[in-house]
């Protein structure tokens, strides 16, 4: 494909749209966004805005109180999500979104903490934190946006870059085997694992709802188009072409074995809800253990403790 396919604009200008006071009816997302920061920094045909909508739509469908939801991001394109959602939101250091979120969740157990960050952030520089949070079954919902590349820094190879893909640091093609993220998450103990693309927006929304509603380490991987770096360097067209590719090449296989869901460069791949089971969270295990050994002497942590008023 030599040129990015775009939806062509109509050659004839349409009559001016009927006068409508746009301000009188706000976009339903506006209530959930920091509108003073919109437009966002993401490129045209990037999938991240779609993921934000899916996250908010999924959140709205849960029983969670808005005040009790916090979003933590690391660094990178996806790391900017925390800056746009109108919730208590923390933009932290590269790779450390999960440990920061762990501190937040343990400090105030009434919170539901969601981590929204990229593939490089969460399984590259933050890989150690990812596997341990899954092992502990820390009560975190992790939305891992996978665009197969370090985009913010200009398109370097990521731990998810498929073999042979061109990046700025693999100009002759990537040759390291990438992570199969659902398999990694399941092996480490995640209680919920799903993968969708940003085109599967309804299924993605439903998975985010489930993940947020479930206690424990729940992972939703979202394959999204990066038009400016991944698509352009690999001559894959625009983000729209990548959505078309996902449409034609992704197969929904709920319950698929995660070991079978690795992604090869521009080959058909599997999406779906792969893991959904229950096991006690870190907090539940800790409280059970302390109660068993200390009995009445154990005083569970209730909420924030540094306030004057308590």
């Amino acid at each position: 494909m030599s040129e990015a396919s775009v939806v062509k604009a109509d050659p004839v200008a349409s009559p001016a749209p009927p006068p409508r006071d746009e301000e009188s009816i706000p976009h339903p997302m506006e209530e959930w966004l920091r509108m003073d920061r919109i437009p966002h920094i993401w490129c045209p045909t990037c999938g991240l805005g779609t993921v934000v909508t899916a996250f908010i739509e999924g959140l709205k469908q849960t029983d969670l109180e808005r005040d009790n939801v916090a979003v933590v991001s690391g660094i990178g394109c996806t790391g900017r999500v925390a800056g746009y959602v109108k919730l208590d939101s923390y933009h932290t250091t590269h790779g450390r979104a999960i440990p920061f979120a762990t501190g937040l969740a343990l400090s105030n157990p009434k919170l539901k903490v969601a981590v929204v960050s990229g593939d490089g952030d969460l399984v590259g520089i933050g890989g150690n934190h990812f596997i341990h949070a899954a092992r502990r079954n820390m009560d975190l919902t992790v939305i891992l946006v996978n665009n197969f590349i370090y985009a913010m820094t200009g398109g370097q190879v990521a731990p998810t870059t498929p073999e042979t893909a061109n990046t700025t640091t693999t100009p002759y093609g990537a040759f390291e085997p990438p992570f199969n993220i659902p398999h990694l998450a399941e092996a480490c103990g995640a209680v919920y694992v799903a993968r969708w693309t940003s085109l599967h927006v309804r299924r993605l929304t439903e998975s985010i709802r489930k993940a947020l509603s479930k206690p424990g380490f729940a992972l939703v991987e979202v394959v999204t188009p990066c038009s400016t770096l991944y698509a352009r360097r690999n001559r894959l067209g625009s983000g729209l072409d990548l959505l078309k590719f996902y449409h034609d090449n992704s197969t929904i296989q709920n319950g698929a074995r995660t070991s079978d869901v690795g992604i090869d460069f521009q080959k058909p791949f599997i999406v779906g809800e792969f893991v959904d089971h229950d096991r006690p969270t870190w907090f539940q295990l800790m409280e059970a253990r302390m109660s068993a050994t200390l009995g009445d002497k154990f005083i569970p942590k209730e909420g924030p403790s540094c306030t004057n008023s308590k």
Binding site: T93, P99, G103, L106
Partner: peptide
């Protein structure tokens, strides 16, 4: 009524401490 967690490394420990403070705990 305190919580201690042994993290996977010191990078995580310090990040968790910052998170812990913003969660409202010394």
């Amino acid at each position: 009524g305190g919580t201690l967690i042994q993290m996977e490394d010191e990078l995580a420990s310090m990040a968790a401490v910052v998170g812990g403070v913003w969660g409202g705990t010394k």
